[in-house]
């Protein structure tokens, strides 16, 4: 594992993404709500480019106390979606939203001044 320089922090606006290849690995680096997140760009389903699709808020179904449904609503949590088949991953953990055991490999990000490194 080594620190690999991937860009300047000032070049990333919130919502920006960068896909990098380091050796055999492809990594998607997201800037979301001021934080950096980095995941393997290979979807755990059929190997699609997991980090390159739509980012979209998580959907929840709200229930009243009497268990009646208030329907589907967007929450403030963010997912990113593999564009091949729609596998949806939690932006902050890389876990599949319906099965938390299915988890993209997460890479640590280190920021030194304005330089951003991924540990890969």
């Amino acid at each position: 594992m080594a620190e690999q320089f991937v860009g300047k922090a000032s070049e990333f606006k919130d919502g920006d993404r960068q896909i990098v290849r380091i050796g055999e690995q492809e990594i998607g680096i997201f800037k979301h709500e001021g934080e950096f997140y980095a995941y393997s760009n290979f979807c755990l389903h059929q190997g699609g480019p997991a980090c390159e699709g739509l980012t979209i808020a998580r959907v929840e179904e709200r229930l009243r106390d009497d268990k009646t449904s208030m329907g589907l609503h967007f929450t403030n949590d963010m997912n990113f979606v593999c564009p091949w088949h729609g596998y949806e991953y939690d932006m902050k953990t890389g876990e599949h939203v319906s099965n938390r055991k299915i988890k993209l490999r997460k890479y640590n990000i280190v920021q030194k001044g304005n330089d951003v490194y991924v540990i890969a």
Partner: peptide
């Protein structure tokens, strides 16, 4: 740009 949640626009490659 694609339209995402609540009308938010997300940029993806063509």
């Amino acid at each position: 740009d694609l339209i995402s949640d609540r009308g938010r626009r997300v940029q993806v490659e063509e």
